[in-house]
């Protein structure tokens, strides 16, 4: 197992290099650079800045160098833990992302738990009561969940939380706690705000998960060993939870490793609509202002997460299903 993991990790290195090159190319794609857009902004507000100042700034951040040289600077920095400097925030990228990463993962994990808690029982129920009213109802709900764009669900949820329940619009904290130091009251405040994004982000995923569980459960219920278990007089509960679910859950486990990274990238749009202090809106803003190192590092981070998630998924499945051998 350990050698397998190490081999997989080594295999990732060339992939990561290719990804870093592509990320760098992508963030360089927009015409001009951050200082061009800054200059344009300044020109709009009539405060002319010197051309020379901008040239000096470009020199300072190596933006005047050829592209490949810039890449080498960036990637060697990354390897030493220096992911570049955010022009807009005037702070190191690593600091900016790190301070928002905690809440991002908290939200994504919350959504993950929510998804599993809802999808698992409903999937089992739907499979056991196939073609019943409940099955049709949940299948229909699942389709709706898959078909309504996330940003619309986010808008409607925000609307309801503000105008029906009197919450504050968006964000994860009430205004009085926003800059307060951590305390029990602040944690409670966070939890009271967190459920909106958690439900919104989880909605689409829950639908998909529910379908997977239902299909998998239906396959398993047809197996002979289930008939055997029933024939020898086991209690139905025992048959379902100890025999059927144990095997039917494998496809769910195989995607578990990928779900967290997918939730992190899937939550970006919802987080922008809800104005959450997570990494998504930071990334969006960085794209708008061509704050390239910030955008690039975030893309890179997500790609690494996905690669690791793939590995975790394979390892988890091998652990849960002894029939599978890792090679």
């Amino acid at each position: 197992m350990l050698t397998y993991i190490i081999r997989r990790l080594i295999r990732m290195i060339p992939t990561l290099i290719a990804i870093s090159v592509m990320v760098f190319v992508i963030i360089q794609l927009p015409p001009g650079d951050f200082f061009d857009s800054l200059q344009a902004q300044l020109a709009e507000s009539d405060s002319q800045a010197d051309q020379e100042v901008f040239e000096a700034l470009r020199r300072q951040y190596n933006l005047d160098k050829p592209l490949w040289q810039q890449y080498v600077y960036w990637i060697t920095g990354c390897l030493q833990g220096d992911f570049g400097y955010s022009f807009e925030w005037r702070r190191p990228v690593s600091e900016l992302i790190a301070e928002r990463l905690g809440l991002t993962f908290l939200m994504a994990s919350g959504a993950l738990i929510f998804m599993w808690f809802i999808a698992l029982p409903i999937g089992i129920y739907s499979a056991r009561n196939r073609y019943s009213f409940g099955d049709y109802f949940w299948t229909f709900m699942a389709f709706i969940g898959l078909c309504v764009p996330g940003f619309i669900i986010a808008l409607v949820a925000m609307y309801m939380s503000v105008f029906w329940f009197g919450g504050s619009a968006g964000g994860l904290f009430s205004p009085e706690f926003k800059y307060a130091t951590w305390s029990l009251a602040k944690v409670w405040d966070l939890l009271m705000h967190l459920w909106v994004p958690v439900v919104v982000i989880g909605a689409a995923g829950t639908a998909g998960l529910m379908r997977i569980m239902r299909t998998s459960m239906l396959d398993v219920l047809d197996e002979q060993y289930i008939t055997t278990a029933r024939a020898k007089g086991l209690a139905e509960r025992w048959v379902i939870y100890k025999y059927a679910v144990r095997v039917a859950i494998n496809p769910m486990i195989s995607i578990l490793g990928l779900q967290l990274p997918q939730l992190v990238s899937g939550s970006i749009i919802v987080a922008i609509v809800l104005g959450l202090p997570t990494t998504g809106p930071l990334f969006f803003r960085a794209l708008e202002t061509q704050d390239m190192y910030l955008a690039g590092t975030f893309l890179m981070l997500l790609a690494i997460l996905l690669l690791l998630g793939n590995l975790v998924a394979d390892v988890l499945l091998a652990w849960a299903d002894p029939r599978i051998r890792l090679e």
Binding site: T15, I19, M22, I26, I27, L29, P30, P31, P261, Q262, V264, S265, G266, I268, I269, F283, F284, L287, E288, A295, F298, L299, L302, A303, L305, L306, L307
Partner: peptide, 16 residues
């Protein structure tokens, strides 16, 4: 290995 939505966003942002 690329996350879909962020990549789409980054590429679209590059359209002049």
């Amino acid at each position: 290995a690329f996350p879909q939505i962020p990549l789409w966003m980054a590429l679209s942002a590059a359209i002049p």
